[in-house]
Each structure stands twice: as C-alpha cells, then as structure tokens.
Write a protein that binds this DNA or RNA. Sequence first.
RNA 1: GGAGGGAUGGCCGAGCGGUCUAAGGCGGCUGUCUUGAAAACAGCUGUGGGGUUACACCCACCGGGGGUUCGAAUCCCUCUCCCUCCGCCA
Length: 423
Amino acid sequence: MIDINLIREKPDTIRQMLLARQMDASPVDQVLQLDEQRRALIQQTEVLKAERNQVSKEISKMKDAAARQISIGAMRSVGDRIAALDEELRRVQNQLDDLMAFIPNLPDPRTPLGKDEHDNVVIKTVGEIPRFDFEPKPHWDLGPALGIIDFEQGVKITGTRFYVLSGAGARLQRALIAWMLDLHARQGYTEKYTPFMVKGDTLMAAGQLPKFYDNLYKDHEEDLWMVPTAEVPLTGLHINDILDEASLPRYYTAYTPCFRREKMSAGRDVRGIKRGHQFDKVEMYIFCKPEDSPAAFEKMVADAEQTCAGLGLTYRVLQLCTGDIGFGSSITYDIEVWAPGCGEWLEVSSVSNVTDFQARRANAKYRPADGGRARLMHTLNGSGLGMPRTLIAVLENYQQPDGSVVVPEVLRPWMGGIDVIRP
RNA sequence: GGAGGGAUGGCCGAGCGGUCUAAGGCGGCUGUCUUGAAAACAGCUGUGGGGUUACACCCACCGGGGGUUCGAAUCCCUCUCCCUCCGCCA
C-alpha cells in the first residue's frame, strides 16, 4: 500500500508511475474522488457524534423528566443520521481500500523505464561461460540417468509438473538448503522456521492478496493458505509490532517450500524441474529503518551473489525495469546462473527493496530512540536461493563426460561421503 | 471434537449502563533538590483519523466484527486467541 497522501499531493507522479509499470492510470482519479467524499462524510458524522456525546452527558445529569425525554428524542434522530452517514462512509471507505490495494509501489528513480523483461539491464556477469569438451546434457536427461530425479513417480502421485528426488538427488537439495542457511547465518541473518500455511490477513499484509488471489492454494474450509514464498510468513512476523530502534535492522532467513498455482502455458518450461507448483527456497528478509534500506539492498544483493559464487556458478545480475519489477517492489535485481545443459540463464534469486509498501499494510513500525512517534519500517526480501534451479545449475555445471556429477566442495559435509554422484 | 474460565494502556491490575476525561501500582521521560547519583516530590507518558500555516479542538479505539441504548470497557450475538480438564492423535 502506498501512502494516500502521495496521491493527494502528487497525483501526476502516481499516474506516470502507473504508466511506467504498464498499468492503467485511471484509478488515481477514482481515489481522489473517493477520498474527498470520505473526508466530507467524516466531518459530517463527527460533528454529529460530538453533539451526541455532549448531550448524552447532560442527559445523565437532568432532573426534569420532560426535558430529559425531549433530549433523548432529539438524540435518537441524531443517532439515526449518524448511522446513515456511517453506512455511507463504510461503503466509500471500502471502495477506496479496494482501489488502494491494487496500486503498486512507487519505483525507485534508479529503476530503468521499460515495457517488459526485454528492457531489463544486465549490470554485470561474474565468471566465464564454461566450455565443455563434450556435449553437456540437460538435467532432465542427467537426473533420470543417475536415478536421482523421477518424473514419472511425481506425475503418478500428484500430476504433471511434479517430480520425486531420490537418493543423492534428494540429499543434494537438502545439502544446498542447509549450506545456504548456514551461509546466511554467517552473513548475519537469524534463521526462522515458520508455518507453511498462513491466514488471509498475512497474505494481505505481504501484498499477495488481493492481487494474486488466483495464484494461491487455499484450504477448502478454513482460512489457511499455502505460502507462495517465505517472504509472506517473514513479513507477518511483525504485523502490528512497534520494534525498538535499537533492535534494527533485523535480518531473517528461512527455508520453506513454496506453492504457486501459476497458470503455466503448455509450451513453456515444460521440461525438467525448472518450473512447478511446488518448489523449495531459502529466503532472506530485512526489516530496517527507511534511511538504511538502500544499503541493506546492496548487502542483500551481495549476500545472494556470494551464494552463487560459493557454489562456483557463473552468474549475472540484472536490474529489472519498471515494467517488470514486482507489485510491491521499488527496485529489483535478479540473479541468474548459467545452466550449460539446457543452455539458458536461470533466475535463482530476486532481491527487492519494498520500502514501506508491505510495512504500511502490515502496520510494522519502530520506535525511534528519541521516543518520537512510531514510524513505518522498510522491508527487503531476496531469494538466497531458489532451489530447483540451483539444483539444475549444479547438476549441469558439475557433470562429467561419463554422466556422473561431482559434488561441489562446500556441499560435501552434508553428502555422507558422496563426492561424485554416479548411476 | 466436548465442558468450563479468560482477553482492559509498555507491563501488572480495578472497573461490569451515565464525573471512564479508564482507579491504583510498576516501568519510562522531564523538572525540583544534589558536586554527581539515589531517595523524595511535581508534571508528562498510546494508536489511527478529521481539522489547523502551526496550535487549539473534534472523532474512534478496553481481543476482532456486529447489535441494543439518548449514552457501552460494562448488556446481547458472533468470531479469534489464551488457560484448565476430557476425548482423539504423529
């Protein structure tokens, strides 16, 4: 949620912002109109409430029964008018809230203008595209041949786009998760284990609802939703909290599976484990003071890069353009690793400064050390990293001519003596 | 799943239709006193909204939502969460 004062004071800025995000700018005018109605109604209703409060107080002291009845009668009709105005106010407020809930965050001035992902900017590439003296295989060939990925079993028990990891494959993914969590701990993040299901309010605070309703899995009888990312429960940790300034910044990291409905098009990314309704991810999350969020963003990008570098993967950093950054983000860098088997760059991380957008929805504030009014925090999130794709990159980059896969050095402590995965 | 008991300001805790403008205490802040500190004393001490150049002032908030009433922390309905006991369960 953005600050409605921004729309009041700088409607043109917001219109331009929506256009830069390839969205319709007309909600701005609707918001302005409803906001005006809302304030007019508040003023009317509050004048009446002040009157009722005062007269009711006088009634309690009245001795004269007749005069008392007259005042009671008068206040009864005032009460009716208040009820009618409040009803109208509620209606206007709801309309306003609905509109505001669909207005995205203001992009950072450094976010480049652009229409879609083609306008994203490559900031840097780290490492060389590896050369193989044999034809590197894609993971959908490597995995089944090694007996570590079973697509048929996934389809059998759940359906298309699900798979089963087996033996060293399952273990390798677990090693990746454990190594990443330990790395982030060394980088200063506190590990959290959160519920994988949350209530609707939590999704609202994180900005997933109402906009991404269609993308979420929900229990059919209770208000329980499967998390689409650990960002959601981590944001939820400080809903309605006022934290001490001294306790900021808060760095959190969490592993969760992620569940996304995603209407996936038939022809796209169908092969392998790149895209599915369920995937594992290690997430980084920061709550901080507004003035600290640009530096926190740089840190988080560096921390995500370290994860790729630690695995010895070639990667590049992209800055997303206005047409491609997420709904709540002001600035986003994606990190992509090179997968030689499928011959493409795979997005394994997306790091965003969400500024106060989630904090306003979540009512997540901090108390300045000087004791002043509570202020909204800034929040940042970033993958560190997304699992199936990291697994793909490891398998495809570390494959040998004979189809075996060398386990990266850093993961070996979790592999139970398996240094090379063989059929 | 069943029965009962709870939810009040940063914390503890009173209030159970009308000086609630929420008692009292603790904590915190400021001041007086003091060389400094402690003690004592005095004052202040939340959130959101409306309004104002800024004040003033006004409205709402006693777990959430709805209702009764001229008037609700207080009465009614409903939901959530916590505690105790029973049942079930990895």
